[in-house]
């Protein structure tokens, strides 16, 4: 009897430990091209090399990812930054540790799209926004912030723009096609598609007017203390993937036009495997945003974002941007405030 137990235990042990047990970690992401470094790090084995067994959990919207990280259901999250994110972070639950996409001059990401009718009627530049109706997803979304930045930069009142929360991007597109809004903001791939179909005119790109840090990799505050080495390993793998991504997708020719070489072609199948609905190579090329090659956050910009949301009353007045990030996992970040 005792002997048989010993055999079973030995077999179980052999199954359970194929190699030096990989540490499990999970990351919540959207099935978008902007989550690319996660997909690359996983497919190229960067996580594995750090001794991490990373599971990618897909979400339908950005908000639940932040909630899932705050509640400990997933270890990491990677999304765009919204008022909701900052409110959760302000309660001390979340810490940004590395950068995701940013609006970088020369790299088309989100564009301002107006209806042909509004365009004909003289809505030709972003300075014409006052008095217009604009479809956004939700209050406190990145689209909302983009218009807010325009208002600050060009000195018009945000309240002069009628913002219509429509919940989803398909609703926004429908409202624009139906002429119920004058303008919407859309990622390049969709914006170019609508312009090609004659459903809208692109009057500019966000990076031309207001470059900013669009998204971040974040984890829970408790992870940054209790599992600091795990976070470090994750960030290290993530940054390696960022470097690959930048090398593949950031090339531009002498005229400033983006070009895609063999490195891009090598990464595109990885993105196609994860992104839903599966894009073709051209769609990937139209969608790849700028991601800092070293994963560095534009810190001062994050402070500005929190200040803006606070000024709008969308983020609690007691919120402090400083407490929402842990900058210790990278050697350096960008544009640190004094």
């Amino acid at each position: 009897m005792r002997a048989r137990f010993g055999i079973v235990a030995a077999i179980l042990a052999a199954i359970a430990t194929p190699a030096a047990a990989a540490e499990k970690a999970s990351v919540g992401a959207l099935a978008f091209v902007s989550s690319a470094p996660i997909f690359i790090a996983k497919e190229k084995g960067y996580f594995e090399r750090q001794g991490l067994d990373v599971e990618v959990k897909f979400f339908q919207a950005a908000q639940p990812i932040a909630v899932a990280v705050a509640s400990g259901d997933v270890d990491f999250g990677i999304t765009g930054l919204t008022g909701g994110f900052f409110n959760l972070a302000a309660k001390g639950a979340l810490k940004m540790v590395a950068a995701q996409s940013r609006e970088e001059p020369g790299f088309n990401f989100v564009g301002y799209l107006v209806t042909p009718k509004a365009y004909e009627a003289g809505f030709k530049t972003v300075k014409d926004y006052p008095g217009k109706t604009v479809g956004i997803t939700t209050v406190g979304s990145t689209f909302h912030y983009n218009i807010g930045m325009l208002a600050d930069k060009y000195g018009f009142k945000l309240s002069d723009v009628s913002l219509k929360p429509l919940q989803t991007v398909p609703n926004m597109v429908a409202a624009m096609k139906g002429g119920q809004v004058d303008s919407i903001l859309l990622p390049a791939n969709q914006a170019l598609g609508l312009e090609r179909d004659g459903a809208g005119k692109i009057i500019g790109w966000v990076h031309e007017h207001t470059p900013w840090q669009l998204g971040a990799l974040f984890t829970s505050t408790s992870n940054t203390t209790a599992k600091r080495s795990t976070v470090q390993k994750f960030v290290d793998a993530y940054v390696m993937a960022c470097a690959d991504y930048a090398a593949a997708f950031h090339d531009r020719d002498a005229s400033g036009k983006r070009v895609f070489g063999p490195k891009a072609d090598a990464l595109i199948p990885i993105l196609q495997k994860y992104v839903k609905p599966e894009p073709n190579a051209d769609q990937v090329k139209a969608s790849v945003s700028f991601i800092d090659p070293q994963g560095r956050l534009m810190v001062r910009d994050l402070y500005n974002q929190v200040a803006w949301y606070k000024a709008q009353g969308m983020v609690d007045a007691s919120a402090d941007a400083k407490t929402m990030m842990d900058l210790g996992f990278l050697k350096q970040h960008l544009d640190l405030p004094n």
Partner: peptide, 12 residues
């Protein structure tokens, strides 16, 4: 309704 949804989106 807009208040509740907006507050939900903003995690307020």
């Amino acid at each position: 309704g807009a208040l509740v949804l907006g507050a939900g989106n903003l995690m307020q």
